[in-house]
Amino acid sequence: MLDTARRIATPEGIELTLRLAGPVPRALAWGIDLLIRGVILGFIAYTAAALKQSGMAIILLSAFLIEWLYPAWFEATRGATPGKRAIGLIVLNDDGTPVRWPAAMTRNLLRAADFLPTMYLAGFVAMVMNRDFKRLGDLAANTLVVYREQKLVPLAIPKAEPRAPGFALSITEQRAILDFAARSPGLTPERAEELAEIPQTLTKGTAPGKAAARLIGIANYLMGRT
């Protein structure tokens, strides 16, 4: 089964799912970062222009520092540049741990290779050929760019009379019923009913058209509502 997620196991035996980020969101994040860097540099240039010759030195030095250290500093200390943060991305090591300075420096210095021959063509080609969407810098530094985990919000399950399912359900099965209940308001009523009729064993004995309500009742029971 084709997926964009990569599962890794921690030494404690916990399986983590990392959702890999591909070329489009990363290109947009890069664009945002480019904009921010441009604004910073423009501001510096505007103020330093008053200093004539030495102002030029300041502009060149800060251009160098911003170009090479801006991404590495943000990734090593915050995990993501402002652009990546805006899109919802974060840089991690292959094993799911946060990146530190060495990896952040490596993957950002290797931009020079990704940039070849112009405008990150090599990086793009490497990314689309790689299972984990790694550009050359990521390959060298063993890093991944993944989607930041969203904050968990409680499932909004419509209130209904709780009903015991009558069968022992595994975690994933409970999750399926809860998902159905939470997403049923977004489905068309016909489709919701169609879906609810699939687990006939659970919805046996319900009046026609009431299967969805039964499943929502079970979901309420599973939520612990009384």
């Binding site: 994933t172 099965e173 399926a176 998902d179 159905f180 489905l187 489709r191 879906l195 609810a196 687990p199």
Partner: peptide, 13 residues
């Protein structure tokens, strides 16, 4: 259309 739910419910059934 809840395709993923459909798959999960099918498996449950």
């Amino acid at each position: 259309e809840g395709w993923d739910i459909e798959l999960a419910l099918r498996r449950l059934e």
